[in-house]
Simulated scan of single mutants.
Amino acid sequence: MKKLRVVFILLSLLITVTFISGWAAATPHTSLKSAVAAAKEHNLPILIKLGTKWCKECKEFEEAVVNVPEIGQAVNDNVVLCILDAEEGPGAKVAKHFTTRNYPSFILINSDQEAIARWIGFGCQDCFVKELISALDDPITITERVKRFQNNPTEDDAGRLGRFRHNEGMFAEAVAYYRRAQEINPASDTHYEMNIFGAMSYGNYFQIFSVDQLIVQADIILNAPWRGDKELLKVAFSMFKAAKRAKDMTLVLPYLKVAVEETAKSPDDGVLNKRAKLMPEYTLYISKDIKQALAFKKENQPQGWLEDANQLNNFAWWCFENEINLQEAEKLARKAITLAKPGREKGNILDTLAEIRYALGDASDAYKYVQMALSEDPDHEYFQKQLIRFKEITSAR
């Protein structure tokens, strides 16, 4: 039965657009309760999509389900779709239950609400379809898979359990499963070293893995015979984030240099686009050309960014973090405040302005703007900590 189901899924995805031009998308459920009822009625699993109003990929997925027949049919023929807001209403409880941190998060469950599989992101439509097909290929619960693995360890189960724990935020457990998969099949086509590095990168953010551990894993990838342009860029981006957290940008320099210089002649437009996003940092930290770094940063900004509150804020924060161009950063942050929606969005920009004013030597101004940020979002713990921080600074002067 399992093989017949997989064949059916693959055939449904290969139907031509002409043949399915009359296909209409089913209305997704916005309540887990109604989704469970529908799943029991039709004997189908449930695909929960947890997202937010500000998540770009979340919107892209919802549009694709309606407008891209291959995506819509893959979903509607095989699962009951339930779309929930992870930050508001009942969806927030579901997100907490499944320890969801990144959006969109896709969680496949059965009608008893037991997890089967989960993955993150919708940056690649083909990747989404592959994830869905893979999950439906062997749709047992995670509890059942763990028991099966304990009795009969296989590379496939180890890899699936690693991915699930990875996306669940259980990074140490994910690394252990990835290493086990690697041990079971050292000749596997899956480069588990990349999976391990990805889990360790996220784990570093939560202080589960140290920077030193991450460096060891990054060096393994750089010296691997199979690593290519995409792997180099992934390592560079991840090490850049780790270096920022460690407040030691020298940590990223070897990876940044190799990634930018070795991908310069790539024939892959996707690789070149990602490389372009590293050029501001490469120019700033390797070439040490502030003017050119700013030029690259502005070139990489999305169209219309000068009228977008969040994009203006992102640019201003980048300037603050790198301690450059602070006067223009202040000007753009002030403009962003006038464009921002009341609440957390405006509060975040006010916090950026506070940091810039402090960097420019005005702690009292910084304190004032953090007060304003907290008034926009009184329950925001970070703003509360910022208020205490700047109050102590101003009181000491």
Rank of each mutant, 00 (worst) to 15 (best):
L10G: 04
T16M: 13
T18M: 15
I20Q: 12
A26S: 11
T27I: 08
K33P: 01
K40M: 00
E41T: 09
N43C: 06
L44N: 02
L44Q: 13
G51H: 06
K59W: 00
F61Y: 14
E70T: 14
Q73Y: 12
V79E: 10
V80C: 04
L81P: 07
D85F: 02
G91F: 06
A92H: 02
K93Y: 08
V94E: 07
T100H: 05
N102Q: 14
P104Y: 07
S105N: 07
F106L: 04
I107D: 10
I107N: 05
L108E: 13
A117F: 15
I120G: 07
I133P: 14
T141N: 06
N152R: 11
G159N: 15
R160T: 15
G162M: 01
F164H: 11
E173S: 07
Y178E: 03
A187V: 05
T190A: 13
T190P: 05
S210Y: 05
D212E: 15
D212G: 05
I220S: 01
P225E: 14
D229A: 08
A236Q: 00
S238Q: 07
R245L: 14
P254A: 02
Y255M: 02
D268E: 06
D268S: 07
D269E: 12
D269Q: 10
G270M: 02
N273L: 05
A276W: 03
L278Q: 08
L278R: 11
L278K: 11
L278T: 09
T283R: 09
I286P: 09
S287K: 15
D289Q: 04
N300M: 02
G304F: 11
D308N: 14
N314S: 12
W318K: 07
E321Y: 01
N322F: 08
N325H: 12
N325E: 12
E330M: 12
K335L: 14
I337H: 10
P342R: 02
K346M: 06
K346N: 05
I349L: 04
A354H: 06
V370A: 10
E376G: 07
P378C: 01
P378Q: 09
P378S: 03
F383M: 08
Q384I: 06
S395G: 02
